[in-house]
Each structure stands twice: as structure tokens, then as C-alpha cells.
Design a protein around this nucleic acid. Structure first.
Lengths: 203, 203
DNA sequence: CCAGAATGCTACATAGGTGTAGTAAATGGA
DNA sequence: TCCATTTACTACACCTATGTAGCATTCTGG
């Protein structure tokens, strides 16, 4: 009987459940960074870790819960970084001063953890609903924070809502530029342009 | 033999090839608008039209070529609209004047053909390569046009490249706001905010 | 009215993904 | 040492999508 047990797959190293969960989340993040959100699937994650699908199902209830857990893990990190970088104590400061503090801080923040920020900034509209709603919610909250800063710094008559949208759109796009070409888009360069935009004639 | 010909599918209306092609492109656009780019597939398009897949393959060589054809059709329309709305004769004008002309024009343009613009503005990173490259190329060209306008209007020392990125990011996002909530984000409101941003103290 | 061209359908093979039931191996404590 | 637990694997059933070969139907011009 030579063909009896035809090459059983070698066992992957046995790993306790909690550690396996972390490992799977890492794998998911790696895939997102390498192949984009489209590449993420239970199957791809299992392959990335060198394990079979049932192992993944043993650790998470499916792709949605897994990605939610991934967000849970990255979210605190990211938001902490972000709120640390935003000059929340902007009251009484000038717009230019705010920009000159915020942009370099955000620039450094992104380059310090590019994988996380690529996953957030490049997150497309087609991610699983759980993920999209989550990221959208965070964006909204950040935008509202920006709105507070805007109305604190600018004339009270300004349209804080729209300005906050515009600022976040710029920051978002600047972030993507930095991630794509860090050497070309330095903090100084972005600050200079931001300063030019707020109006060179500002006090 | 009662079960001999078990319900053959009723023939869809016969349509000459060129008309069928248009119909399929319309269906693809409808699906993109309704379900996003993820919903688009040969299968979905065939279903949308009420026809079987081989019919689609008879008209196009696959999803890539079909979407390319769709872009071909929408592109001229969109770019014509866009370059008509952009104040290319900006030299000698003030930034505020440029904004006051451009934003209402863009606003009207988007609301006049929301389906096309949703397909462009919401196009995510994960569309088929053909489409992504195409839209990216167009964006780059538009951005370069903006860069020309910027350097024409602003001080020659300004960083045209970064400013063009920022402006396009804002316009892009404003477009999405208008598409999402046209009543809330009127042209006037967006113009006012843009004016505030270029600096209230500008001449 | 009746070919033959044009158009549409069925059916199949292929590929990748989901989720699960049942089984096999490793591990640690009695 | 041996058994129970934990962990991992196999195998299957199912789904959706791609792409194609061959057959069926409709239409049109002679």
C-alpha cells in the first residue's frame, strides 16, 4: 500500500489561542498593506500564517469579526497618536501657528507607523460594512474635533463644518502623499503650502 | 413526456449588437451607481439587462474591456464638462475671483450628471487596473492643469505641485459632499468657505 | 417560403471563496 | 505512562463568478 497516506500536510506549530489571534490580526494587516483590502479573506489570512481555514474560524467567527478585532487593536493606537498630534489647545493661537505645529506632528506620526495609516487612509468604500462604518465614525469624530479647533481659531462667523471637511480632506490627501513618496513630500514642504493657502497676508 | 422541455428561459428581446453594447454600458453604470464598483461583474451586468452571460461576452471581451468602453463613453463628456467649468483663463484674475467662478460651475456640473460623477469621484482603489489607471491618469492631467492655474494666479514662489494636490483634494471632497447632500452643501456655502480659506485678508 | 446570418440560451469546466463535521496529532498533568 | 484537552488537518457541500462550445431560435433577404 504505497499510496495509502498520500502526504498529509505537516502540522503548523501549535500556538495557544490568544497568541494565534494576534498572529492572525498581524497577517490581516500585512495583507491589507501588501494587496489592499481586496486581498483580505479568511483563506488568504490562513495561507499567510501557514495554517488551514478552520484554524482561523476557531479564532474568529468570520472575516467581519476578525477585521473588527483588528480595528479594535489599531484604533486606540491610531487615535492616541492622532489626538496627540492635533493641537487641541489651539484657542488663542493663530491659524499659521496651529498648522506649523500640527503638520509636522502628523507627518511624523504617519511615518512612524505607516502600515496602520495606509490601512486607514487607503481604506476604500468597499470594505466590509463593519469596517467602513467604524472608520467613517472615527473620521466623523475627528472632523468634529477639527471643527471645534476651526471655530476656536477663526472668526466665529466662519462655516466650521465645511472648513473642517476641507481641512480633513487635505490632511487625508497629504497623508497619502507622504505614504507614497516620503522623500518628495516633507513636512516642511507641506507646512509651507498650508501656510500659503491660509493666506499669505494673514497676521 | 410532461417533463421533457423543462421551462426553457424565455428569449430576451433581440437587439442589434451596437445597441446591445450601449445597453450593457448603461447597465454597468447603473450598477456602479447603485452597488458600487464591487457590484460590477459580467454576471451582474447580464442579470441587470435580463440576458445571459454569453450575450455580454459577445459584445465585449470581458469586464476590463467593457469598463474601458464605459470610460471611453463617459470620459469625453466628463472632461468636456470639467474643462468647461474650470476657469482656464485665470491669468490676471485674483484667487477669490477664480474660486467664485469655478465652484458654482463645478457644483452645477456635478448635479447635472450625478451618475457619471459619482462613478468617478467614488472610484475606489480596487477597481480593475484598466479603470484605475485611466481615472488616475485623468486626475493627474487635471491636477497639472490646476497647477498651471495656481502658478498663474499666485506668487511665482508658491509650491504649485502641493497646492494643486490640496485643491484637487478639496474639490474632490466637495464633490462628494454635494453628491451626498445637495441641499446642505450649496454652491454659495462652498464658495464662502473657499473664500475664507484662501485668506479673508486677501486683496 | 426558406436558407443563412444574427442573436440568444444551455451546459460544462474551472477557479476561488465560505463555513462545518469529523478526525488526527501534539501536549501537559495525573 | 496514559488520558484528556487543545490544537490542527481533511473532506465535503455550497456559493458566485469566469469563459466557452454547441445548440436553439428569430429574423431577413432573395
Amino acid at each position: 500500500m504505497p499510496e495509502q497516506t498520500r502526504k498529509r500536510r505537516p502540522y503548523a506549530p501549535r500556538v495557544p489561542a490568544p497568541e494565534r489571534r494576534e498572529q492572525l490580526l498581524d497577517a490581516a494587516l500585512t495583507i491589507i498593506d501588501r494587496d489592499g483590502y481586496d486581498g483580505v479573506s479568511i483563506d488568504a489570512i490562513a495561507r499567510e500564517v501557514g495554517v488551514t481555514r478552520p484554524v482561523v474560524y476557531g479564532a474568529f467567527d468570520g472575516l467581519g469579526p476578525l477585521l473588527t478585532a483588528l480595528l479594535d487593536r489599531q484604533q486606540q493606537r491610531a487615535l492616541t497618536q492622532l489626538y496627540g498630534a492635533l493641537p487641541l489647545d489651539a484657542l488663542g493661537s493663530t491659524p499659521v501657528a496651529v498648522v506649523e505645529r500640527a503638520i509636522p506632528a502628523l507627518h511624523a506620526m504617519i511615518l512612524a507607523d505607516p502600515v496602520t495609516w495606509r490601512a486607514i487612509l487607503r481604506s476604500p468604500a468597499n470594505v466590509p460594512d463593519v469596517v467602513r462604518e467604524r472608520i467613517e465614525g472615527d473620521r466623523t469624530r475627528v472632523r468634529q474635533t477639527i471643527e471645534l479647533m476651526v471655530t476656536a481659531v477663526l472668526a466665529p462667523g466662519a462655516d466650521g463644518e465645511v472648513l473642517a471637511h476641507a481641512i480633513l480632506a487635505i490632511l487625508d490627501h497629504f497623508g497619502q502623499l507622504v505614504l507614497a513618496e516620503p522623500e518628495r513630500f516633507t513636512a516642511d514642504r507641506l507646512v509651507a503650502s498650508a501656510r500659503a493657502m491660509i493666506g499669505a497676508g494673514q497676521p
